[in-house]
Design a protein around this nucleic acid. Structure first.
Lengths: 337, 337
DNA sequence: CCATGCGTTTACATCGATGTAAACGGGTTG
DNA sequence: CAACCCGTTTACATCGATGTAAACGCATGG
């Protein structure tokens, strides 16, 4: 089998110079129709496809953007990845998907282009990095952050209004008559991460209702997986003064909690209400189906890609942008819906 | 901020030639310790990192392998991706994750390196391509196929023994006294896809037990998602002679079926048994928890990466390989476990 | 003291595509 | 008919890293 054809081969076949072939490929306007046709024919005949390495070396662009998320088997991220890839595809880019495992070093590596400088820019969903680390990133690589807003604010950002979303979630539970609402995966103090922001929103709703905020009901977790939600829920219902509702900061936690409640003979929503965050596909199909906060993932993905591509095309373009994407409360069976 | 340092900058800083720096980077043996140390220091001082485009252009290698799967939000694939990435990481490679959406053209594009020739090889989990198409691939790009075994057999392959796995699954249900077992997502005829192979295995078990095989109980689906499983299950229990067990060809279908059965007042496993395939994390936490066939995903990932890297390092290396990975039946509540 | 050998380092060319600037050629115009 | 213009095409250099082959330097042996 012959070697992969180069631009030079196409040029010889078409009887023109390599640069002319390049001009045709890149839709340069001053190419006569005859030449263009001849080159197109040569490209088809030889099955030529551009070599990205050569192009990048010359242009400094790859057409590849990286999406770095903590874990792909957290459904929220794989669903988000799907939207990001679809949008990138629409814009003629390729997505390099990367898992950081929420490890600091790997998130930092993502910020700096993976030593590889393989991509034109990065969409990063950070978990471990603190704002200062996020701020010291390599300015040469455009970055858009997802999730919590970086305090320093040196980077474009897309996310939902976590405080408001959590407040609305708790308001929903309060409106159902729930009074002792536990927050699984929450954080009362510490940096303004997603967990802290959502806990703050919850606290606002509780206090606005004239109820006392009980920090004992905020249960931190190791990770946002089923098992962590199950463990937390099991612990909570064994307390002397158990909660009458569980606000779980993602759907995996909530689904794990549902399982634990079932194992312990509690009925949802009769005995307790349960809510989640993210609205992953599984949440429509659980038994009972799960009330949850649904961020507009498609809006998040679309906006993140747009902001990133703008920065790539023009690194100096305007001020930092901070897009707040929409969200909805999806009321389902786990809170009587 | 200064421009990214090149190998030449490092060379000047260290007072050696660019090629010597390259030798240090690539661990060439004939470099004196003094020179090596000086170069290392220069690299640190300047924060130098190799430019992959330059390297690929010269070496024809990127260190990047592609994993192309139908859909990332099918948990089996995102879990598999996690293992593949972990293994690739261990081997010092980067994974470019790609979604084909089960679209023929996109699977073909994957086979040919995405027009981009960005990667050294591809691990492809095909859904739509027929064996002939798989055989006509570009020989220059090493490929490992996952899932069903390609009939033509022109490519390395890793998968479980689908026929046996399905036979064992059905045997489990039969041993519980189930007699009318429906297959959701199955196929009685057509090419030897995963669906067909598993249906065949099921049929073998049924007939080995001296029972009639009822093709009416094999229900095809559009996709392997919750909603499809829910729809199929809802249809089945409305029949005059409903099944007493559902063998669903992936866990999403099974979880959707559980939901539909619940909505229709059926109790699992009292009224029916339900089984899935894949053993995704959600299946341990559903209510009831799901009996399922657990392929050894880690073995699949590890082997696929190994085979691919061998082919990349030596394209002529030996005959085609076909690795059959292990699987287990995980008995849980949905079949009385 | 020079020749030889071996291990280390360097100069140069090269991978493929494309920016730059100059060359080319056909048509106008004075 | 020459000077000129403008749109098209080309020659050449370049991006960064590395393979090749030759040069270099130090040590040993004749």
């Amino acid at each position: 089998m012959a070697a992969r054809p180069r631009i030079k081969d196409v040029a010889e076949y078409a009887g023109v110079s390599p640069k002319t072939v390049s001009n045709v490929i890149n839709d340069f306007e001053h190419v006569s129709d005859r030449t263009r046709a001849a080159v197109r024919e040569a490209i088809d005949a030889l099955g030529y496809r551009v070599n990205l390495a050569g192009r990048q070396l010359r242009q400094g662009r790859t057409g590849v953007i990286t999406l770095a998320v903590p874990e792909l088997d957290v459904a929220y991220f794989s669903e988000l990845a799907k939207y990001v890839m679809a949008e990138a595809d629409r814009r003629g880019r390729t997505v390099l998907l990367h898992q950081t495992g929420a490890v600091r070093e790997r998130e930092l590596a993502a910020l700096h282009g993976f030593d590889a400088q393989f991509c034109d820019g990065v969409i990063l969903s950070p978990l471990s990095l603190v704002p200062r680390e996020l701020a010291t990133r390599d300015r040469r690589l455009p970055v858009v952050l997802l999730g919590e807003r970086p305090a320093g604010g040196a980077t474009d950002h897309v996310g939902i209004d976590n405080v408001r979303a959590a407040r609305e979630a708790t308001e929903h539970l309060l409106s159902r008559g729930r009074r002792r609402i536990a927050v699984i995966g929450g954080a009362v103090r510490g940096r303004q991460g997603t967990d802290r922001l959502r806990t703050d929103g919850h606290r606002q709703a509780v206090q606005a209702a004239g109820l006392p905020f009980d920090a004992e009901l905020v249960v931190p977790v190791d990770a946002y997986h089923w098992r962590d939600g199950a463990r937390a829920a099991a612990g909570l219902i064994r307390r002397n003064d158990p909660p009458d509702a569980l606000l779980c900061l993602n759907d995996h936690l909530a689904l794990g909690a549902l399982r634990a409640l079932h194992e312990n003979g509690r009925s949802v929503p009769r005995d307790l209400d349960v809510m989640g965050f993210d609205d992953i596909e599984a949440s429509s199909f659980s038994v009972p189906s799960l009330t949850t906060v649904a961020p507009d993932k498609e809006e998040i993905a679309r906006t993140a890609v747009s902001l990133l591509l703008e920065r790539i095309d023009d690194p100096e373009s305007g001020p930092l942008r901070d897009h707040v994407a929409g969200h909805r409360i999806m009321v389902r069976e786990s809170s009587g819906g």
